[in-house]
């Protein structure tokens, strides 16, 4: 027996690792010393484990036909636009359920494949497409030359194109490749912040078998470039100078 009294709330929180480190330690000690307490903990722990097993039973149930049909549709490059600069038709392309599902799967694939404790999700920017400054993707956009491959978690990211948009902002098209598929995106830099403008995903088909065909050829990206890239992309020399100036506009 121990002097301390532990409630079911605390025992349950122990299972979830939600007690303070001091409480976790104290309860661990008491569990070793107090058989009755350990017995209660075992009951709650077993209930939790059986609960998870019972819920996990859904894994064995066949997918509902409508969901399966949507997920079995052959993948094609799909599109999410985060902050369209103009209300364009491309934003609403591919809004069929099947497309949405595949698109979501691709987003998640990229996200889960590249997330680590220290990294922000690569292509899961906020509603306005913000790529946070601490993310490896931001770093890649800031310093990598076109064609230069950066390893970002389990993904490979590479800029494909740098150009000045119609509003003067500099933008880059880049690819991100993981085992789950590839994606091509365009992000633009405003006030030192990169914001994703449009992303196209190409899910590997079938899952696991990598396909290089390209999200980069997605109509949405072409449409964005048509609408917002008034001239030719920067050549290697212009881009190198721009990177050297840390994206400051030319003084000339």
């Amino acid at each position: 027996m121990t002097d301390r009294i532990w409630t079911d709330e605390q025992l349950s929180a122990f299972l979830d690792g939600e007690l303070t480190p001091q409480e976790m330690e104290a309860l661990s000690q008491d569990l070793e010393a107090d058989a009755a307490l350990a017995g209660r903990m075992e009951k709650l722990g077993t209930a939790n484990a059986v609960y998870r097993d019972a819920i996990g039973g859904i894994d064995n149930a066949p997918l509902k036909a409508s969901l399966k049909a949507a997920m079995d549709t052959p993948p094609t490059a799909q599109v999410i636009a985060f902050k369209p600069r103009s209300i364009s038709a491309f934003v609403m392309e591919h809004r069929a359920i099947a497309a949405s599902l595949l698109c979501a799967a691709a987003v998640w694939g990229v996200t889960s494949a590249t997330s680590t404790d220290s990294q922000s999700d690569l292509l899961a920017p906020g509603p306005d497409g913000l790529i946070v400054a601490s993310s490896p993707l931001h770093q890649m956009l800031e310093v990598a030359a076109t064609g230069e491959v950066s390893k970002v978690g389990n993904a490979a990211a590479v800029p494909r194109l740098t150009f000045a948009a119609d509003d003067g902002a500099f933008c880059r098209q880049f690819d991100v490749t993981t085992e789950d598929g590839s994606s091509a995106a365009i992000a633009c830099r405003e006030d030192g912040v990169w914001r994703t403008q449009v992303v196209a995903y190409q899910l590997a088909k079938p899952l696991g078998e990598f396909q290089t065909a390209s999200a980069a050829r997605a109509p949405a990206l072409e449409a964005f470039l048509d609408a917002h890239m008034p001239g030719a992309p920067l050549n290697a020399e212009q881009e190198a100078m721009l990177l050297q100036r840390k994206w400051a506009p030319s003084q000339r």
Binding site: K64, L67, L101, A104, G126
Partner: peptide, 21 residues
């Protein structure tokens, strides 16, 4: 049905930038 509805909704609405997908 809920899985399907969720996927559709996730794609059609903005996501806060301070939350994991």
């Amino acid at each position: 049905d809920l899985v399907q509805a969720t996927m559709e909704r996730v794609l059609s609405r903005p996501m806060p930038d301070d939350v994991e997908l």
